[in-house]
């Protein structure tokens, strides 16, 4: 991401992005003055899990770079540990902004920033909508089938650990009296949000 951005044109044409993020999240990203403390303490960023640092995401929101921000790996790689939020001297809930950008990307069907994350969230939601609770064995199989490059990523845990996990992991889906509860809630939420 080392392209040149025409700041004046960018802000003239896309200044409503920060406003929409504020409306969705209640967080005013315009307060950010780019100290970089969020990025300095971000474990995911330090370990190489992000393509753009968190403070750059804040700047992208300020500049209205919606298309670019929603296509970063960063918004999906954030694990919401909220260390950034806890340390921000401007009292910006950065983790909440990341989650809000995820919701925006999800609603628009933009997944290319980190496709494996999007696949995970969809499979997770499918699991709890279907069973009411997470069916971990089913979730793991579905992930291996649909994600790219993760098929053998867990093998290095070693044979003893694998045996232990295989022993502990319930083989059958969770049993509930009414496993339809989450599905109803999700459908109701769609209706309520559709009214606005």
């Amino acid at each position: 991401m080392s392209s040149t951005v025409n700041l004046s044109a960018q802000q003239r044409e896309h200044s409503d992005f920060a406003e929409r993020v504020f409306k969705e999240s209640g967080v005013d990203v315009l307060k950010c003055y780019q100290c970089g403390k969020c990025s300095a303490g971000c474990s995911v960023h330090i370990c190489g899990g992000m393509d753009v640092s968190p403070n750059r995401i804040m700047r992208m929101v300020q500049l209205g770079m919606e298309e670019e921000a929603l296509r970063t790996r960063t918004i999906w790689a954030c694990v919401l540990c909220s260390t950034c939020t806890a340390r921000c001297p401007r009292d910006i809930d950065i983790a909440r902004v990341m989650d809000t950008l995820r919701i925006m990307a999800h609603k628009r069907g933009i997944t290319e920033g980190f496709n494996n994350a999007s696949v995970f969230h969809n499979i997770f939601m499918d699991s709890i909508i279907k069973y009411g609770r997470v069916y971990e064995a089913g979730l793991l199989v579905a992930l291996k089938m649909k994600q790219s490059g993760t098929m053998f990523a867990d093998l290095p845990i070693g044979i003893p650990a694998m045996i232990n996990v295989a022993f502990r992991l319930p083989k059958l889906p969770p049993k509930m009296k009414n496993s339809d509860q989450v599905r109803r809630v999700v459908e109701n939420c769609k209706k309520i949000e559709g009214e606005n």
Binding site: E24, S25, V79, L80, D99, T100, R102, I103, H106, K107, F120, H121, F124, M125, I128, G132, R133, V134, M176, K177, N178, Q181, V182, V185, V186, N188, C189, K190, I192, E193
Partner: peptide, 26 residues
């Protein structure tokens, strides 16, 4: 809690603000 459901973490809250709250509220 009888017949409790999943709280929705780590995905519910990233699918929508309301759905992320309503699932654990159930």
């Amino acid at each position: 809690i009888p017949d409790w459901v999943c709280c929705g973490a780590s995905s519910g809250h990233s699918m929508g603000h309301l759905v992320g709250l309503a699932i654990p509220a159930k």
